[in-house]
């Protein structure tokens, strides 16, 4: 095991009788971005939540920097502090300002003093084009602005890896670009990422690898140009042609 930041091995997860993950294997090495694609309901969100220990997995293991994190004896809170997760629906804290959203984790989970946390928080918001919106509450921000606050919030704990769950799918089309720009920015600085996405052109541009999740397994993965243009598996081909018909590519 070389420089893998995240390694998912044989992970299975069922909700009641519904088997969602049936043995997922996925490796993400440092500074690389993996685009996780798959039909709606295929388990992309579930996989990301399992990695961030928001769901208990049934079988298999997840490793972070070579250390198993899915062992029941492991302190989940300490692990989550080393990962960042951005939700599809933003999940910002509505009773807090943008800045308070960003600094909460730094102050309460990482013990950063308020002044320093706020300084960093402001810089982070500015970096994602939110200068001047620090004191706005989420419901005074557009969807694109909210999602950028959410990205800043997930990034503020300086995570080893960032998990992004369809960060643009709740947005109006004209707001997608600004959020993708934020992700591009993180990629440029070498952030290790797993990006669940429906934006194939974005996956092609920003991801080093595309992994296709189908019926609870990663059935095909590889460089984007290969997986997206010459898929080897019939399931992948069918999924991509359906996206093409829907005008999503």
């Amino acid at each position: 095991m070389s420089d893998a930041v995240l390694e998912v091995r044989g992970v299975t997860k069922a909700f009641g009788s519904r088997q969602v993950l049936r043995g997922v294997d996925l490796t993400v090495t440092e500074h690389r971005a993996v685009a996780l694609i798959g039909a709606s309901g295929s388990g992309k969100s579930t996989l990301l939540r399992c990695i961030d220990l928001l769901e208990d997995i049934d079988d298999g293991d997840v490793f972070l920097d070579g250390e198993v994190i899915t062992d029941p004896a492991v302190e989940t809170v300490a692990i989550r502090r080393r990962l960042g997760l951005v939700f599809q629906a933003y999940n910002l804290f509505p009773h807090m300002t943008a800045l308070q959203n960003v600094v909460l984790g730094d102050m309460r989970a990482h013990g950063v003093p308020r002044r320093e946390a706020e300084e960093r928080g402001r810089a982070l918001l500015a970096r994602f084009g939110l200068e001047g919106r620090e004191d706005d509450r989420p419901d005074n921000l557009s969807g694109g602005q909210q999602q950028r606050v959410a990205i800043a919030r997930a990034f503020s704990g300086r995570p080893r890896a960032l998990l992004l769950d369809e960060v643009t799918s709740a947005l109006d089309p004209e707001l997608v670009g600004e959020v993708l720009a934020a992700v591009r920015d993180l990629k440029a600085e070498g952030m290790t990422m797993v990006i669940a996405t429906h934006e194939m052109s974005f996956a092609r541009e920003v991801a080093d690898e595309v992994a296709f999740l189908h019926e609870g397994r990663i059935v095909e993965s590889g460089p984007p140009e290969r997986v997206l243009t010459e898929p080897q598996r019939p399931e992948t081909r069918r999924f991509l042609s359906r996206l093409l018909e829907a005008g999503r590519i």
Partner: peptide, 11 residues
């Protein structure tokens, strides 16, 4: 989702 988000930032 509020609890999830709070746990995700390490609380």
């Amino acid at each position: 989702g509020q609890r999830d988000a709070a746990l995700a930032v390490g609380l």
